[in-house]
């Protein structure tokens, strides 16, 4: 599998006067899993969304395999066609799944193959079926999203992304909207993907996933990248007081 790298340099993002991302520098190595953690409102989702330009950053650079995304040159917007071209090889999974409710699971996965990759309907349906089998949903292909559990919907969403054969996968809190007992099935699919050498960037509150699957963990707070380190460096030996306090609250909330 080809895997992309992401280079983020001095990225800033403003919402009006609100400074959402402050001079972010981060390297995402190819074939590795990077988890973005931090309190809500810290900018981790915004940073993730800058990586496929669903969110426009105001200054700095986000490069996918060396190619600047969203801009041809600083301040000069890239054409829609070029941006779409780049997005084809970047998969994204959302907190709210965002499946298209008027299509079956099978059609949801095939849609991009037909409309974006230009595959024939027959080829697209075959490839979509393979992708759904991979996430363990071969028997649910004909169901509409309304007839699937949250965990199943999220796995369809992952199948929709991987069917496009991306070189980079972005996950925006993929398990936050799920009932606790459905989290595992989604994380397992993600683990398989990681073991195949996919470059993955995951915004998550699942510290267990970060600890066991991530190769590096980045901690953000108030739009600043506080620290990037190995999972154990961040989660077991945090140097910064802000990370220590975040983890303390996390442990308190999760202990009983």
């Amino acid at each position: 599998m080809q895997a992309s790298s992401v280079e983020i340099r001095k990225v800033n993002k403003f919402y009006g006067p609100f400074h959402a991302l402050k001079d972010i520098d981060l390297s995402i190595p190819p074939g590795k899993v990077t988890c973005l953690i931090g309190p809500s409102g810290s900018g981790k989702s915004t940073l993730l969304r800058c990586m496929n330009f669903l969110e426009e950053y105001d200054s700095g650079e986000v490069r996918i395999d060396g190619q600047l995304i969203g801009y041809d040159a600083p301040g000069k917007r890239m054409s829609g066609r070029k941006l779409r071209e780049m997005r084809r090889s970047i998969g994204m999974v959302f907190q709210q799944f965002n499946l298209w409710p008027h299509m079956t699971a099978h059609e949801n996965v095939a849609e991009g193959l037909i409309r974006v990759r230009g595959l024939s309907k027959a080829d697209a349906m075959t490839r979509a079926a393979d992708a759904l089998a991979k996430v363990g949903l071969a028997d649910k292909m004909g169901n509409h999203p309304s007839r699937l559990s949250g965990g199943q919907q999220q796995r369809v969403a992952i199948a929709r992304a991987i069917a496009m054969e991306p070189k980079l996968m972005l996950f925006d809190e993929p398990t936050s909207a799920l009932d606790p007992e459905l989290v595992g099935e989604v994380l397992n699919v993600m683990k398989t993907l990681a073991s195949e050498g996919m470059t993955m960037v995951v915004v998550t509150h699942e510290m267990g996933f970060a600890a066991h699957v991530a190769d590096q963990v980045a901690f953000l707070e108030k739009g600043e990248l506080v620290d990037v380190d190995t999972p154990s460096g961040i989660l077991h030996h945090p140097k910064d007081a802000r990370i220590q306090s975040f983890l303390r609250t996390y442990h308190e909330r999760n202990s009983f």
Partner: peptide, 27 residues
């Protein structure tokens, strides 16, 4: 129409006219 469903289409590189035809209009 939830913005997320439009964004999901944008994220896989779907062109805007296709998004209108396949997602926005039916929903």
């Amino acid at each position: 129409v939830p913005l997320g469903q439009i964004e999901a289409a944008r994220a896989i590189g779907m062109a805007e006219p296709t998004i209108i035809r396949r997602i926005l209009l039916p929903l």
